[in-house]
Computed example of a mutant assay.
Amino acid sequence: MNTRSAPKIDVFSPIALDSLQLKNRLVMPPLTRSRAEPGNLPSSMAATYYSQRAGAGLIITEATQASAGGQGYIATPGIYSEAQVQAWTKVTDAVHQKGGVIFMQLWHVGRISHPDFRGGDLPVAPSAIAPRGVQTYTADGLKDIPTPRALETHEIPVIVEEFRQAARNAKIAGFDGIEVHGANGYLLDQFLEDGTNQRTDRYGGSIENRARLLLEVIAVTADVWGSDRVGVRLSPGGTFNDMCDRHPQETFGTVVKRLAALDLAYLHLIEPIQPQGEHPMPDLSVHFFRPLYPGTLIVAGGYNLARANAVLQAGLADMIAFGQSFLANPDLVERLQRGAPLNTPDPQTFYSGGANGYIDYPTLGEM
């Protein structure tokens, strides 16, 4: 009898996403950097930025507009024009030359926008509900977000088709797959959660109806890529952008069970921060979702190396996202392997533009 135990899985263990072989389980998640150039082109420095971080098992780009109407912040890139496709091709080429794997995250911000980005038109949303206390960065600085216009039912298929075309464009640009952004209070999340969706048509009311747009977007992007190259990001219980749902376990539990049947590349969950106080949030961690989702599960939420390895070894997740750590450490994988100290992220440069705080964080060899 073979009494040798199986080797322990850790963040440095390889993993396969169907036919994609990933060299480790460390994920660089989407990180908005607000450095897009005129025409919403990815920065001319983006190829350097992403290829510096090609040691990650998987890179997921900053959130990228599937259409011109999906923009909500200044200097964020798109994937709806030929020029944008050509610019992104330089990024994918650079990452692949370094042996990296890169997915593009596709988004539409919905109500988290401003008429400045929409030719004077109001932002659109499932319902005409303004996000309380939320502002957005425009060319003229921070501005309050107005009450959005509720989408007409006949307008929604247009948005679905914009995601389909964006998925095609991402494929032309050489990406290895795409991630559908269903998190953080943007359009697909706004339809999903009952705090922002008060519709009475086929896109509102029941959980199945509120999830319809998300599932339609997944279906059309999977038509382009195959479901095994489509990931989905969700943020159950997240409150960013004034989000709420009365029954988050039921809502997100139902959605995750639906996703489990789709043979996706992965499900990417942002674990909520548990609030302090007398009304604790229901469990929306991987402990709740793992039994519902047997496929590849990525988890994000302030992980360090020890906590990441503990979650992997417990079988609660398959890959771990390290956000600001990848932002500030282009050689994060090597640093973690060697137990070396990490660079400290500089929040003042997260969205400041330019090379500073973008491509100039030193590697171990440069210190």
Rank of each mutant, 00 (worst) to 15 (best):
S352G: 09
I9K: 09
A260F: 03
Y358H: 08
G120T: 04
N169V: 11
F252D: 01
R307A: 14
G301T: 01
E208I: 10
F322Y: 15
L41V: 13
P42V: 13
Y186R: 02
T92C: 05
M243T: 15
M45E: 14
G72T: 11
L297A: 12
Q198F: 04
L22Q: 07
A94H: 09
W107M: 09
A222M: 11
P362A: 00
Y80I: 07
W88L: 08
L327F: 15
I74V: 13
V230N: 06
D140T: 14
D176I: 04
S227Q: 07
D121K: 13
A219I: 09
N304W: 01
A56H: 11
T3E: 09
L58M: 05
A317S: 01
A6M: 13
R149Q: 10
Q348W: 03
A328D: 14
P38T: 09
I79N: 09
L364G: 12
L267M: 04
P115A: 04
P291M: 04
Q324Y: 08
E155Y: 10
A300C: 06
A166D: 10
H287Q: 15
P294V: 04
G357W: 12
N2K: 05
R210F: 15
V220T: 14
P126A: 05
G302D: 01
N343C: 10
R4V: 14
A130F: 06
F191Q: 00
S352N: 10
F288P: 12
T3F: 08
R35W: 09
H154K: 12
T138K: 03
G339R: 00
P7Q: 05
Q324W: 11
A219G: 10
M367K: 10
R246D: 15
G277L: 06
L106H: 14
Q276E: 14
T349R: 12
I74G: 03
K23M: 14
I145E: 07
A139H: 15
L151N: 15
A150P: 08
P157A: 05
P146Q: 02
L364I: 15
H268Q: 13
D360Q: 00
R118P: 05
Q71G: 12
L312H: 06
L215Q: 12
I9M: 11
D331G: 12
Q274L: 15
V333E: 06
L31I: 15
S352K: 07
E334W: 11
S352V: 03
L305E: 08
I178N: 00
D121S: 13
P131C: 02
A63D: 01
